[in-house]
Design a binder for these strands. Structure first.
Lengths: 332, 332
DNA sequence: CTGAAAGCGCTAACAT
DNA sequence: ATGTTAGCGCTTTCAG
């Protein structure tokens, strides 16, 4: 079903059909009507691909993610709600499958889609500096290098992390471990920073054995979580602050597998407040990022960029602590 | 950054570059090496659009949704996890914005993407019969007309709904309302059927005043929810079985706004078990659909179709009741 | 082994 | 008002 089919059936040239479906001047009402009838009859819809190859603008915003997991899909919900009524459509592309291991997926995806398929892009947790700028507006959410280079939207990771650890300190914990995030992400660095700041402020030295890299994903968090909770490794922490909810939930599962009760024997705090954090057993205490709002703001920003409106290069939103049932005073 | 740029810098023709990047025969090792070096240096990545216009296959599976809300994103998580390691990439397209009101979005989106951009499609809650079959494999999740025509994946809506209502009956409820779903979706029809069956089996006549159309969305559910709970409309129900979680959560909000306590004054049951159902206050009792698995199965099915493997046309997965805190015996 | 040329579906100048 | 033509970036015969 191509434009040629329509042209043939309607007895006109493809150019005329193109003009009609794009409301261009220079076509008689009668022909336009006839063409429109054929379009409706055949159910013709112009190919996004062919059109975008020829045109400069497609009216679609790309959302580039490594994979569709709780974090990116929450963002997506916010973006989707915000795009409503703007006339733009959304195209979410996951080009970094295979365990999220393929570094540089965002540059690849951007090259593949930009310039043609999408007018602008929101890229979620890019792992690299977007050195060579593409020709379309790009907003990064939770970027690699933190505020610098491209436009970004993120939340106050340091303060959020400090609040999380302070909550554990207030409960009486002293041996607090940190299961870090992805070393290539600024957010992970800042959360660890907040962890260290909170401990220092409380006059507690950071025990290097209690700080591990969890990688943000359940699979990558498994080994470090076991090491942290293994009695053979040293004195077990009474609490774990994990760098995100997915790894925090995995810590709970590992703990329970090891016969530890949460929160009686071990307190666990996460980060993000994805909906899944409320469904774990016990429900997870976590630092909430305003993910829907972050998505909406990223969309707003990329739209402004598209229209040439001036924008601050960075937007940082506040976090808030959500206390649920995975934290309690330490044993003894 | 196009193939011509690479060709120029490498001092070869575009045809040669194309052969190199696609591992075609007939290129001397030395040229290939030189081209590859330029590709790496320039960070060239072939345009998905241009390539797909010329080729027949793109190795990307399309997921067509009206919007990114809790239901479709849960499916997406399952699809995303299942695509990992298959070599395919995912492109989720939301073409039905503007309140999800634009009927026929799935046909439009399919026409725009099929044949070029995507090799196959999973379409989520299509509102129309996909009469004119496109030339690519399509699997529908929770379709309009129920098992018929295209390949489908869904869950046992009738049994699930019966279980939900039976749970309320077991608690002692007799005046049980139903806030229905989207009339254009088979799932909504079947859930209402289950509701009626359960009441009939218990010897309770269905009160027409207690059955309203909620449309699956918070906005569309608002008015019918208020009518259901308005004392002026008649004797208030002691329980509401909503056709999905989003509208059930909205019922809880409306009830609380009206000064009703959930579950003391009003019990509420939802359907789907999206993660959000656990975060409402109180947490929602609901019928769980295996959404991740449904997404994974839909992907598996569409991949089999792509490879010409024979498949049953319909796959129906079981539901299960998840009892949380939004249900209790009726007042008095 | 390499390049010239055609063509995928469409739009935009430019004729007629 | 309509049609012809070129060309978007790429792959693929087909000559050289």
């Amino acid at each position: 079903m191509t434009i040629s089919d329509v042209a043939r059936v309607a007895g006109v040239s493809v150019a005329t059909v193109s003009k009609v479906v794009n409301n261009r001047y220079g076509v008689s009402p009668s022909t336009a009507e006839r063409v429109l009838a054929v379009v409706a009859e055949l159910g013709y819809e112009s190919s996004l691909v062919a059109r975008s190859l020829r045109r400069q603008s497609t009216n679609v915003i790309g959302v580039l993610v490594a994979e569709f997991e709780p974090y990116s899909t929450e963002l997506l919900k916010g973006i989707s709600a915000a795009v409503d009524g703007t006339g733009y459509e959304l195209l979410a592309y996951s080009g970094g499958s295979d365990g999220g291991a393929k570094a540089g997926w965002e540059r690849r995806s951007l090259s593949r889609l930009a310039g043609t398929l999408i007018d602008a892009a929101i890229v979620v947790t890019p792992t690299m500096v977007m050195s060579e700028p593409v020709d379309i507006p790009v907003v990064a959410v939770d970027p690699h290098t933190g505020p610098e280079g491209t436009h970004t939207v993120d939340s106050d990771n340091t303060t959020g992390a400090r609040d999380a650890v302070q909550h554990l300190l207030d409960l009486g914990h002293r041996r607090i471990a940190h299961l870090g995030g992805r070393t290539d992400l600024e957010s992970a660095r800042l959360r660890e920073l907040g962890y260290r700041q909170a401990l220092e402020a409380a006059g507690i030295a950071v025990d290097p054995h209690l700080v591990r890299i969890g990688g943000y994903r359940p699979e990558t968090a498994d080994t470090p979580a076991r090491e942290l909770l293994d009695p053979a490794t040293g004195v077990r922490p009474t609490a774990v602050f994990a760098a995100n909810d997915q790894s925090a939930i995995h810590v709970i599962e590992v703990a329970q597998e090891l016969g530890l009760r949460v929160p009686e024997d071990l307190s666990v705090v996460g980060f993000d407040n994805v909906p899944e954090s409320a469904t774990s057993t016990p429900p997870l205490t976590t630092v909430a990022q305003p993910l829907h709002r972050m998505g909406a703001e990223a969309l707003r920003m990329v739209l402004d960029l598209l229209e040439g409106a001036p924008r601050e290069q960075h937007l940082r939103l506040p976090t808030s602590l959500v206390v649920r049932a995975s934290t309690a005073p330490p044993p003894d």
